[in-house]
Design a protein around this nucleic acid. Structure first.
Lengths: 340, 340
DNA sequence: TTGAAAGCGGTACCAG
DNA sequence: CTGGTACCGCTTTCAA
């Protein structure tokens, strides 16, 4: 019981393969008019056989796979899933499918994934990998092959970009904390790769400096990307003396670990210390305490990335674009005035 | 700057297309031996041109797309991500790619997704959709086309299956609660579709009955699949009188909402009521209180599903298999003796 | 208004 | 050991 092909449909309808193709694709095209009667015959045959065109053959012939690749560093972070979700919806709406691959924070796997996408001849690529280990060389190579690429979350000069300016937000976070009287502010910096997260770290330092406060390296801890890492980092941070009165974490996933660490240490948030982070994942407003965090519209980022990409697919010569998704500091329950 | 094709490689290496194909695919095959010298020449040409075979063309010819479809009801649940993750790894290891589609709890979209997968000629399909609205008819049709299918989480008689027996676990949960002295036990039942979750509901009722306890319909609430739904359901449940001393929720995502609702009501868990749920998503052990929940190895489910699928791809005649992934009741902090 | 036929980029059989 | 070539299923001129 093989699947029916165009030929089968043609035979059953008593027409040629070309006619079938016309009927199926050129519905509104007047260039190749088909008599209503043949059209119906063909459609009937299609229905009868349950014919579905073969996307591989179509794309081989047409050149476009109607597929866009999405490379994510890590599938554990809810923030990324929101982006994926948005991208998925936009893609589907445009008749595209998403080929999702995660590098699991592993450079080798990342490169492998990219190869797979390339062999599949995706129409475009969205990188959420920010600054991964992805060699610039490899990227340039792909670009040279005229593969449209959109970067999420970083301002690379040679690609279309979309994302939020967490750098600015970090400044706002610092202002908020300073207004509450905090001076010993810690920073937990645990992300997929060294470079990402720096956008938040620098403003943190700048703000301290501007306020005439010292930058205490003991208050800056770098860790891995998991909640467990955040937990460990927080334990270390909160058990040293003098301990910080406020903690900034690069994302909500890690913040969850910090909250747990605090509870295990018998510390109360925000009475004993304040906590702020970034992303505003759905869970943030359900945590105890509800998390004060920098909100961005992750789904909009995903959607925008796809739109940006498809626009470039449509016109490779258009000027590079950068889209900023605004952020908002959601002040909830995890921040309060400095304890005395 | 078009991408190089086999022809380009052949030309550069001074051989025919066939030879290029041989060198690339039959490395260990002795049937078509290639002189070491030509082999090197070809390889050199491949490297020089950065040639990558076109997966579409390959699959068109070979019949296999090396792609497996994965249909998920909802991309918001971390439990599903873990499954996806496991599936992804197993697939990649076997040289397959995953084509992920979510139905977003929408029947129409589900059908559409399935069509897309079908047009892409996936080698097999994994359904995490349990009993969605997916018409049995549609499934049979796909099966009739000899598309290998694996179902996750349900015992359908006509497909390979993998999953955990939450039904049994629900019994264990009830025993645990009964041992702690609970009698007014509520059940929050909010999932993708009506039928799923019933596996936990029935044992709940049975257990009550067996203990000679009444089944109070006011203690059974059905809601949507989101945390917000869980929150709302819990509020309703906990504000009625007499309120339950224990609450069972069908999954951790909803449990998160219940925890938040309790806190907002000024209720303490487990002092005021106990809470148990299912899945043991990574966040469960970070919640406050740490969640007592039924643990299953979601990644193993994902991995197993693709293994099952690939085995069937290898041999369509093998007998149907059902794999059970064991569960374990993780007793943490959200359950305690009944308040007096 | 419809049909014939030339590819798209590979694979694998059959000769040489 | 290597090359010629017939497909895989579809789109799209070009003719009829």
């Amino acid at each position: 019981m093989k699947r029916p092909t165009q030929v089968d449909v043609a035979r059953l309808a008593g027409v040629s393969r070309a006619t079938v193709s016309y009927v199926l694709n050129r519905q509104t095209d007047t260039r190749v008019p088909i008599s209503e009667e043949t059209r119906q015959r063909v459609l009937a045959a299609v229905a009868e056989l349950d014919y579905e065109p073969d996307a591989r053959a179509q794309s081989l012939r047409s050149g476009s796979t109607k597929t866009i690749g999405l490379l994510i560093p890590d599938l554990q972070n809810p923030h990324f899933w929101q982006i994926i979700n948005g991208a998925n919806q936009a893609a589907r709406r445009a008749g595209y499918d998403l080929l999702l691959t995660s590098s699991d924070l592993d450079p080798r796997q990342e490169e492998e994934s990219l190869k797979a996408l390339s062999r599949r001849r995706i129409d475009g690529l969205i990188l959420l990998t920010a600054f991964t280990t992805l060699s610039q060389e490899l990227l340039n190579e792909m670009a040279a092959r005229r593969l449209p690429i959109v970067m999420i979350g970083c301002k690379d000069l040679s690609f279309d970009c979309i994302g939020s300016n967490y750098s600015e937000s970090a400044g706002e976070v610092m202002r908020h904390l300073r207004e509450l009287g905090h001076e010993r502010i810690a920073f937990i910096h645990g992300v997929a790769n060294e470079r990402s997260g720096l956008d938040r770290l620098q403003p943190y330092k700048d703000s301290l400096l501007a306020a005439g406060l010292p930058i205490d390296e003991n208050l800056i801890v770098h860790c891995g990307a998991t909640t467990a890492d955040g937990y460990a980092a927080a334990k270390q941070l909160l058990t040293q003396a003098p301990s910080p009165t406020a903690v900034i974490v690069v994302n909500d996933l890690l913040a969850r670990g910090v909250i747990r660490a605090a509870a295990d240490l018998g510390l109360f948030i925000p009475q004993d210390f304040s906590l702020v982070s970034f992303d505003d994942i759905p869970a943030a407003q359900y945590m105890t305490p509800r998390l004060t965090t920098v909100r961005t519209d992750a789904e909009a980022i995903g959607r925008g990335a796809v739109e940006l990409l498809l626009q470039r697919v449509g016109n490779r010569e258009r000027p590079l674009q950068t889209i900023h998704i605004p952020t908002q500091l959601m002040i909830r329950e995890s921040t309060g005035v400095v304890p005395n």
